[in-house]
């Protein structure tokens, strides 16, 4: 079992527990390949998906993981603006817990919201993204996908490309990968890189070609279209020319490199459609591994004592 009751983030999260989750996830991945993709591991466990911010894939991935484990699930969605106006965060959380639930999967626009929730309720909390802070389950599925491809994480060289400062995916990946012994270089426009990188144990290089030469895999982050052309990024074509993972750019480098993307992609902006659809991209493996990883996390945290695959 895991050392911590909740999964709030990967900063300081025990490396051996990350490994346990990944190992367990591979077992569940095997379940997902079966004709009947359901195990009774979490029968009688009730989980609420509390989404204060829009999400399609993360929510579906969690929901599917819960259903595959035979847990009972309830969904709650509210936009953050309605939250600000109406019922307080505390009341929402306490009302839901009063209905006797075992675990909460929460996405929220505010950094620290998942930790905040642990102060109000006793249920197990899984952070499905708290603002610009962390998105630990995404990082775990990314690491599982790298593990699947390379058979290890230690010593791997990973480039994370794009808007680092606003990215919870980047921060969780940095914590997870560095604690698992991988090397990380971040690459992106200087104004989208945190000013204070000390303590994060990463390298920074604004030259994408050098990063491609160096890396075993690139994790390409979504660049928010809202940021294009106003304020932070001068234009679409400038971003594409400087930081876009284009076919032409990859062709210049005579090496195999694995391409990842947490989705949703902006084809033609941070990544070319050709690249996304090529064999070197493992983007759809990530999606499948996302279900398996989340099954593993839910199973390990929600006290699933039954064996995996028990029938």
């Amino acid at each position: 079992m895991l050392k911590q009751k909740h999964l709030l983030g990967l900063e300081g999260y025990p490396a051996e527990d990350i490994q346990t989750i990944i190992d367990t996830a591979f077992n569940f991945r095997e379940v997902l390949e079966r004709p009947i993709k359901k195990v009774p591991s979490l029968q009688g466990v009730t989980i609420v998906n509390l989404f204060f911010e829009n999400s399609t894939r993360t929510r579906i991935s969690f929901e599917l993981a819960q259903k595959r484990l035979s847990a009972d699930t309830v969904n709650f969605s509210a936009s953050s603006s309605s939250l600000k106006k109406g019922e307080s965060f505390k009341d929402t959380a306490q009302n839901i817990e009063a209905m006797k639930i075992d675990a909460v999967v929460m996405r929220h626009p505010t950094p620290g919201a998942a930790k905040h929730l642990t102060e109000f309720i006793d249920a197990i909390i899984i952070n499905a993204g708290d603002g610009t802070h962390e998105h630990p389950t995404q990082a775990i599925l990314d690491m599982m996908s790298l593990h699947e491809k390379f058979g290890r994480l230690r010593g791997l060289k990973i480039g994370i490309i794009g808007d680092i400062v606003h990215s919870r995916v980047a921060l969780s990946n940095i914590y997870g990968l560095t604690s698992m012994g991988a090397e990380v270089t971040i690459c992106g426009p200087p104004n989208l890189i945190p000013s204070f990188l000390q303590d994060l144990n990463v390298n920074y290089n604004d030259n994408l070609d050098e990063v491609i030469d160096w890396a075993d895999a690139l994790n390409v982050l979504r660049i928010q279209r809202e940021r294009m052309g106003i304020g932070l990024v001068p234009s679409n074509r400038e971003y594409r020319a400087t930081f876009g993972i284009t076919q032409e750019r990859l062709n210049k480098h005579e090496k195999e490199i694995i391409i990842m993307h947490p989705g949703p992609m902006n084809r033609g902006v941070e990544i070319d459609g050709f690249v996304a659809d090529s064999n070197q991209a493992i983007i759809l493996d990530q999606v499948l591994n996302g279900v398996a990883s989340r099954m593993a996390i839910l199973y390990l945290l929600c006290g699933g004592k039954a064996n995996v695959g028990e029938n």
């Binding site: 950094p111 921060l171 990188l197 000390q198």
Partner: peptide, 15 residues
Amino acid sequence: HEGIISTHLGLPGNP
């Protein structure tokens, strides 16, 4: 405060 800690916490920094 914008610094190492705000980077860790993901909270927007005030320099």
